[in-house]
Design a protein around this nucleic acid. Structure first.
Length: 237
DNA sequence: CGCCAGGCCGTGT
DNA sequence: ACACGGCATGGC
């Protein structure tokens, strides 16, 4: 899938940010939010010099809420971003570099303990801001795997389903070196988002999708019940 | 005008 | 465990 998408779309150059901390901010702000709207919030933060750790420290939660309003959920996201900086200060002397030096497993647990940080946000920070070789799963990947019948059981929209997607992705890049895995996992998630936006939204648009008929049949599992029903009824396809 | 976006969280069963 | 609704806003 990575190769087919790379051939179709080319390198995505993710994450679209100038610094590691911008990645962190973007990871929070883009939760269930269009990236276009995130950009407006990031522009606001840049305008007042709050696009950095010291900048976030300097603004009040109330001010932060105003600045990130364009990307929504500000009453939750503003305190959540503050909580991240609090952890950064308390445990890593306010340095993302020092934070990155900790083991990925430790970091993932700590990130998940923060308010407003679930599996995808934690993994996006780990991969794109801290440089750890962890897969990032998302709703687009879930839909691709579901619609292309790449797993033997339904992948639910819960923690278990997320972990399944992570394991599938992890296994797919198992043979590569740690350094290569970081680069490949970064590119893969970016490409999944690209194909997801174009073809695998809530309602599928499979016309001219680069994945159409281009995934290895040998990896496919037998259809399971809910797909059989969908196929028979012409639903959800 | 209605649907949806690069989720997360609390609550009910 | 799993389903489900709320959270806020703006783009298309």
């Amino acid at each position: 899938m990575h190769d087919a998408l790379l051939a179709a779309y080319g390198p995505q150059h993710w994450w679209p940010a100038r610094t590691a901390f911008e990645v962190v901010l973007g990871a929070y702000l883009t939760q269930n939010t269009a990236w276009k709207s995130v950009e407006r919030s990031l522009d606001n933060l840049r305008r007042v010099g709050a696009l950095s750790v010291t900048g976030i420290r300097a603004v009040s939660v109330a001010a932060l809420q105003q600045l990130i309003q364009p990307s929504g959920f500000q009453t939750r996201k503003a305190p959540a971003i503050k909580a991240f900086v609090a952890l950064l200060d308390a445990e890593y002397a306010g340095s993302l570099k020092r934070m990155a030096a900790a083991p990925a497993e430790t970091l993932r647990v700590r990130l998940l303990s923060l308010p407003g940080v679930g599996p995808e946000t934690a993994d996006a920070i780990l991969l794109y801001a801290l440089g750890h070789a962890v897969p990032v799963a998302d709703e687009y990947l879930r839909r691709v795997v579901e619609r292309h019948e790449l797993h033997a059981a339904p992948i639910l929209k819960n923690h278990k389903g997320y972990e399944t997607l992570v394991q599938l992705t992890d296994a797919a890049f198992a043979g590569d070196s740690a350094e290569e895995r970081v680069a490949l996992l970064k590119e893969f998630h970016a490409l999944v988002v690209a194909v997801g936006k174009a073809h695998c939204g809530k309602t599928a648009d499979c016309t001219a999708c680069p994945l159409r008929g281009d995934l290895p049949r040998k990896n496919r599992q037998p259809l399971y019940a809910h797909q059989e029903r969908a196929r028979a009824g012409g639903l959800d396809r």
